[in-house]
Nucleic acid binder design. Sequence first.
DNA 1: AATTGGCCATGCAAGCTTCGCATCGGACAA
DNA 2: TTGTCCGATGCGAAGCTTGCATGGCCAATT
Lengths: 305, 305
Amino acid sequence: METSWLEDFLSLVDTGNFSRAAEARHSTQPAFSRRIRILEEWVGAQLFIRGSHPITLTPAGTRFRPVAEEVLIHLDEGRKNARRDAENYENIVRFAATHSVSLNFFPEWLRSIELRSHIFNTRLDTVAFHQCIQLLLRGECHFALNYTHPAIEMNLSPEKFTGKIVQRDRLVPVTLSDAEGNPIDRLPGTEDDPVHLLGYSKSSVTGQVVEQMITKKGNSVYLNRVFVSPMTAVLKEMSSLGRGTAWLPESNIREELESGELVYAGTEEWFIPIDIRIIRSRAPLPPTSEEFWTLIDKEEDTNWG
Amino acid sequence: METSWLEDFLSLVDTGNFSRAAEARHSTQPAFSRRIRILEEWVGAQLFIRGSHPITLTPAGTRFRPVAEEVLIHLDEGRKNARRDAENYENIVRFAATHSVSLNFFPEWLRSIELRSHIFNTRLDTVAFHQCIQLLLRGECHFALNYTHPAIEMNLSPEKFTGKIVQRDRLVPVTLSDAEGNPIDRLPGTEDDPVHLLGYSKSSVTGQVVEQMITKKGNSVYLNRVFVSPMTAVLKEMSSLGRGTAWLPESNIREELESGELVYAGTEEWFIPIDIRIIRSRAPLPPTSEEFWTLIDKEEDTNWG
DNA sequence: AATTGGCCATGCAAGCTTCGCATCGGACAA
DNA sequence: TTGTCCGATGCGAAGCTTGCATGGCCAATT
């Protein structure tokens, strides 16, 4: 059943005349006549009494008329609503980021961008690193924000994806200080007094780079792995409670370092340069997301991987 | 917009898989895929996220889904109702008859037919003679019941219409009797004491045949036309009140003649043979009406005109 | 009574659409 | 890496719809 037949039907009801109705529907009378006939066959009942002038509805036609009207209106409204939803959906800039980035970086970063442009409708999915990449691959987010490090392979082909560094940072080992302001742990630790490590899960980027650093140091470092979490905030809290040493983003603990609440547990040789990178597909995104991209495109490092 | 696209849409929502949905819809995957695409273009929004398995709805698709369901259901119900109405309508045997026939003949006649068959759903339009013919010509009634007379031309082509006599009758001139039981009028009347004629309108069959009878008698009949009506019942009432003489269907005044309430105002030479005839189009009627026709087809005079 | 004009149905050829088949490219699993 | 599943697309064929021309019917007019 073609909805244009319903419009034909209503047009014929209004005009009471095949020729006029055909004209109103921008068709010829024979074609119009045939479409009415086909509609009647589809309904399974004669809808018009053809003998009379003007043409009138049969009881079946009278019954069918409001149905035709309602169906057309309902369809049109449904279509409009669907379009509106799609438009709204397209206007949302969708991000995926890990917990650390979501908490420590994203809010301030977004605000700084909006300050020099305008407010965006955004959505942030906070998930594990690999899920960020999955969402990106599936097009379910427009931008992924993650800590990256040259040693970390993301398996994203450079032909299809690109990215920029939006923040340079360092993971620094910190711990609580004792009464004299000395760290309770000091890298690399000793056999008798190993460093109490508050470590990241290995699935996270930070976890991998920290692990790589430790591996690089080989046997010259003494660790006691007392706690593991994927979340920076948890490790920071544990560290603040004196439970051990954690590699935390420097930008995230500036206050605690200044106030002396936390102190470095090692010298710069133990610092790990790490960046926050925004990644996108090279395929076109919705206009709003592309606009967002141009705003960050100007100023940041565009090197890849 | 083709409603089958909505069914395609819902099928794809259910299966989450183009190939399965295509199979369920008795189509091939490429054709099905194209139809979904066309529906999306018509709606003006992407309805499915194709990357995922199983395929999922976009916000627009989620919004559109109930609309598709409701429209299909509504259309189907409307169609069923229209069919039912048409069927009911077709089951009604539609008659058109003049006032006289409607009052004096139809009820008893219908009952006698139903007694040897079953009850019919009937509709009787009581209108003037020419309107009966019009309704018949336009197919707005199945059967016309009218007084007929060889002198009356109906302008119905015998190739398209046929009929039967269902009652033989006579128009007889009757009037009130005086105290001695003699008619107060006596045809042909005299110049000094003309018959008080209660006449039919000339548009009716009875009016025409009575007029023809009077014309045939020429100057040998003396009349005073005191009243005119198209309705037998009115003329009968006027006659019973002693207002004059009316030609009434004999079958209709049997009781009054027996009781002496009315008496003949003339001898048999003034009687006019007249029949009640049922007329139908030769074109097929709805089954119920054809059944009705076969019930009266068996026994009556089939001569035409 | 013949004619004219309005109206709807129908035959026919042309153009357009849709279909099915074959195939491609991508994603995922063994 | 290979095999498999999935959806998209190119292409020729079949089917459908359209517009034109025409026919039949009816009603109003001359």
